[in-house]
Design a protein around this nucleic acid. Structure first.
Length: 445
DNA sequence: CTCGGTATAAACAACG
DNA sequence: TCGTTGTTTATACCGA
């Protein structure tokens, strides 16, 4: 969030909590921070770990989580929106699900983070804040007001900040190519203004930007561990096994996990997918630091069997290899990924200088009309099968003044696929695939 | 030093 | 009329 830091000294004094900005970044947003000490003392850790011992018991624990926590845990689901506070927040705190056994130390930590979050500006740019807000909305589109609301809800800092931030949000929406205005009549029935959504074409770039902001040490992506992360309570630092990529647990939070998974070419995490929710939930429990990807049909009970029989990595290129279900009740395994064809057509980290080659600035970009999903996207949806079609959001029509989507020429697409493949390779997908066999064990540390 | 990205402020028009 | 929304322009800072 450079510009925040880069404000003139006199301006800095106007912003509450600006002094703590640097030091409070971690604390403000948590970023999934879960220090070992904190983990060790976490009641969640003990409550889960105590029951653990065998993998069967672990599965029981997973069930427990599934049954007791998942109902209340929605990542951007309608309930979350309506309840005025999702259990998961971007700061990695549990807002209302600490449970009766919250230890005082954890409460202190939580309070400390909350206090920091009140004072400190989030380490995300406005574009990322908007992106997260939109991504976590059920319809993947939000009016400005709800974007305000989301930001306020997750980053209380802004409640006390000068109102200029709203102007900045609007400015970002309006100026940033990553965001697109959707005719409100096609979304909500009434209301002022339009709905805003993320341009799928730019989603990878936002994710990239998120990675950059979230993971200053981005090289970690290209230096996967030689051996997959072992899950041992006594082997810090623990790693998060994310679709073959290994990250330090402290470097990731649930929202980031979702976005990282989505950033993997060919993959898409449906944040409303119960398995992902569970996985993310687990992510926050000290005893589990894995988001595991399982093919369709691998249930809790057959996970172990699957991994002992599976001699290769999960072929995520197969549409049938991952669970795609619209009904949470249908899902009894822990697949965390719903397949989506890769939308990563560009690996550029720039958010606003990407389409200049194809367009003459914003005006041309906004010219024309189109549906929310490109033809490619439509194909994608069709590829995803019947179950998926039931979840397919209604096509959103761009306003007439929107530019048509850039045509991706086949050769360019190939190049991008290749680039995406390289990125995957760099990210350690291949080198870590062996680790997938460990993943089932790694759900308990 | 330049450039790109971002934040902030301000002005203005359109709209409910 | 007023508040909100959307757009545009200008300016400033930081990091590469």
């Amino acid at each position: 969030m450079g510009p925040i830091i880069g404000m003139s000294p006199d301006k800095k004094t106007e912003i509450p909590g600006m002094q703590e900005e640097r030091t409070g970044l971690r604390g403000a947003c948590g970023v999934g921070t879960l220090p070992e000490a904190e983990c060790a003392s976490s009641p969640l850790a003990t409550s889960v770990d105590r029951t653990g011992g065998t993998e069967d018991e672990e599965l029981t624990n997973l069930n427990w989580l599934h049954e007791n926590l998942l109902q209340n845990f929605t990542l951007g689901g309608p309930e979350a929106q309506a309840s005025g506070g999702p259990l998961f927040d971007i700061e990695g705190d549990y807002k209302s699900n600490q449970g009766p056994s919250s230890s005082s130390s954890q409460s202190l930590h939580a309070r400390g983070r909350e206090r920091d979050s009140l004072k400190s500006k989030p380490p995300f740019s406005f574009s990322l804040l908007i992106y997260m807000a939109i991504e976590q909305s059920p319809s993947k589109s939000l009016p400005v007001k709800e974007i305000y609301g989301w930001i306020l809800e997750h980053f209380p800092y802004f409640s006390n900040a000068p109102t200029g931030w709203k102007n900045s949000v609007r400015h970002n929406l309006s100026l940033n190519k990553c965001f697109r205005k959707v005719d409100r009549s096609l979304g909500k029935a009434s209301g002022k203004g339009s709905l805003w959504c993320v341009d799928p074409e730019y989603r990878p770039n936002l994710i990239q930007a998120l990675k950059k902001q979230h993971f200053p040490a981005a090289h970690a992506f290209s230096t996967p561990p030689a051996s997959p992360p072992r899950c041992s309570a006594s082997s810090p630092p623990r790693h998060l096994f994310l679709q073959g990529c290994s990250f330090k647990e402290s470097d990731i939070d649930a929202a980031t996990a979702m976005m990282l998974l989505n950033s993997a070419p060919g993959h898409h995490v449906d944040p409303s997918h119960p398995s992902f929710q569970l996985s993310v939930r687990h992510l926050h429990t000290p005893s589990c630091h894995c988001i595991s990807v399982f093919p369709v049909g691998v249930t809790l009970k057959t996970r172990k069997e699957y991994f002992s029989n599976s001699d290769g990595p999960l072929d995520l290129s197969r549409p049938d290899s991952v669970l795609v279900s619209s009904d949470p009740k249908q899902d009894h395994n822990y697949s965390s990924v719903a397949l989506q064809r890769c939308s990563s057509r560009s690996s550029s980290s720039s958010l606003s200088s990407l389409d200049e080659g194809g367009f003459n600035g914003r005006q041309s970009r906004r010219a024309g009309s189109e549906g929310f999903h490109s033809d490619e996207d439509s194909d994608l949806w069709e590829e995803r099968g019947l179950q998926e079609t039931s979840r397919r959001p209604p096509a959103i029509k761009w306003p007439v003044n929107k530019r048509p989507r850039r045509e991706v020429k086949p050769e360019v697409d190939e190049e991008l696929k290749e680039a995406a493949g390289s990125l995957l390779h760099l990210a350690g997908i291949r080198s870590c695939t062996e680790g997938s066999k460990h993943t089932v064990k790694s759900t308990k540390y």
